[in-house]
Simulated scan of single mutants.
Amino acid sequence: MASAQVTGSTVDRVGAAGPAERRGRARDWAEIQERMLVPLYLDVYRRLEVGAATSLLGVGCRSGLSLLLAEGRGAQVAGVEWDEELRELAAARGLQVAPGGSITRSAHPVPRAAHSLVTVFEQSPTPALVAWSAQRTLPGGLLVVADRGPAERCGSTAVLEVAHRHAPADVGDAPAPGGLESLLSAAGLRPSASGRVACPFAYPGLDSAVRGLLATGLFDGAEQRAGAALVAKELEEALHPFLQPDGSVRMVDEFRWAAGVRPEGASCG
């Protein structure tokens, strides 16, 4: 599970959940859930040799851990995030993260016009979000998109059934083979690299696991339709197979990513 509703982008996530549903979720993301995706971030940065020569823009960067990791490798970093509470947490980490605005507009929300690397670590990014992000990639630069892997390679598949039951339109399947590359090609980019990485989701207990998973935004639609109490109860039940003898919770998801190059002199989107 990544950081947005499976069928949409950060824009959809923020629009789907009102203030009451999102209250406290930003901090739960930053304190519990965000670290689960560190293997994905590090694999991308290692494979693409992110370093001092990299200017990186994180689209949908949430509270900014992915930016901090790139900054630790010497990169110049900036972010775009639609959720105000997440932006505040990123700012508290000393990061420059701007509001996202509308993905239908071409105006760039951060001072630098384009970047050598743009990342969209959103689960199932929409074609519109990918095209918007491609416009912020320098000619010869790279855009990275990511998604959860096949259902049989993800422990969270059983947990996501809670969202499927109550809001089936909000949760789709993992992309078919080549799906991420097709998104990049449709945005005018040339697919150039890809990878897959296991991300262990480990929590000290059931309460922490439920809070972390709810912070992903994947269950917002289910909460709106069935109520927060019922969704939390069903999440606890779905997590019982992943309980360890010491009371902790552990499951492993596979994530896939693909990178595309913006051709020199090409107009993307």
Results as ranks from 00 to 15, higher is better:
Glu181Ile: 12
Ala202Gln: 11
Leu189Ala: 02
Thr157Asn: 04
Pro99Met: 10
Leu42Pro: 01
Ala91Met: 02
Glu49Phe: 13
Leu218Thr: 09
Ala20Thr: 14
Val77Gln: 03
Glu161Asn: 14
Ala17Arg: 06
Glu122Asn: 08
Ala163Asn: 02
Thr119Met: 11
Val14Pro: 01
Thr126Lys: 05
Gly188Arg: 02
Pro39Phe: 06
Arg35Lys: 06
Ala98Cys: 12
Asp170Pro: 00
Leu230Arg: 09
Leu214His: 06
Gly8Val: 06
Gly74Glu: 00
Gly260His: 03
Asp12Tyr: 02
Cys61Tyr: 07
Lys233Met: 07
Met1Pro: 12
Pro150His: 05
Pro245Glu: 09
Arg35Pro: 09
Leu40Thr: 08
Ala229Val: 14
Lys233Leu: 07
Arg262Asp: 02
Ala107Glu: 14
Gly205His: 15
Gly195Asn: 03
Ala222Gly: 10
Glu81His: 14
Leu138Phe: 01
Gly24Pro: 04
Ala163Leu: 10
Arg190Gln: 09
Leu206Lys: 05
Val59Gly: 05
Trp132Ala: 03
Ala193Met: 01
Cys61Phe: 07
Ala167Met: 06
Val38Ala: 10
Pro191Asp: 11
Glu71Gln: 15
Trp257Ile: 11
Ala75Arg: 00
Glu152His: 11
Leu37Tyr: 07
Gln96Thr: 15
Ala193Gly: 06
Val252Asp: 03
Glu161Trp: 08
Val162Asp: 01
Ala158Pro: 01
Phe242His: 12
Ala16Glu: 08
Ser133Leu: 01
Gly140Lys: 11
Glu181Trp: 10
Ala228Lys: 14
Ala209Pro: 10
Pro39Tyr: 08
Ala226Thr: 03
Ala90His: 06
Ala98Trp: 09
Leu214Ser: 13
Val77Ile: 07
Leu235Ala: 00
Arg93Ser: 09
Ala215Gly: 09
Thr157Ser: 15
Ser194Arg: 13
Pro245Met: 09
Ala17Met: 05
Arg153Ile: 07
Ala53Asp: 12
Ala30Cys: 13
Thr54Ser: 12
Arg25Asp: 02
Ala114Gln: 11
Ser116Leu: 00
Gly60Met: 13
Ala167Arg: 04
Thr7Ala: 07
Pro150Met: 05
Tyr41His: 15
Ala202Thr: 14
Ser116His: 02
Ala134Val: 08
Pro245Trp: 05
Ala2His: 14
Val97Ile: 15
Gly188Thr: 04
Ala113Asn: 00
Gly64Asn: 04
Arg105Gly: 12
Leu69His: 02
Val231Met: 05
Val6Ile: 07
Asp147Thr: 13
Arg27Gln: 13
Ser208Leu: 14
Pro39Asn: 08
Ala169Phe: 15
Asp170Glu: 14
Val130Asp: 04
Ser267Thr: 11
Cys61Ala: 15
Ser156Tyr: 05
Leu214Trp: 05
Ser55His: 01
Ala202His: 10
Thr216Lys: 04
Ala4Cys: 10
Val231Gly: 11
Pro109Cys: 10
Gly179Asn: 00
Ala176Tyr: 04
Ala20Ile: 08
Glu161Val: 08
Leu160Arg: 14
Val145Phe: 13
Asp28Asn: 15
Leu138Lys: 04
Val59Leu: 09
Thr137Asn: 00
Pro139Asn: 09
Gly221Trp: 03
Gly64Met: 05
Gly265Leu: 06
Gly24Tyr: 11
Ala16Gly: 08
Pro150Arg: 06
Pro200Gln: 14
Val252Asn: 07
Leu57Tyr: 07
Arg196Asn: 06
Gly217Asn: 10
Leu48Asp: 00
Leu42Glu: 15
Leu243Asp: 05
Glu71Gly: 09
Gly178Lys: 06
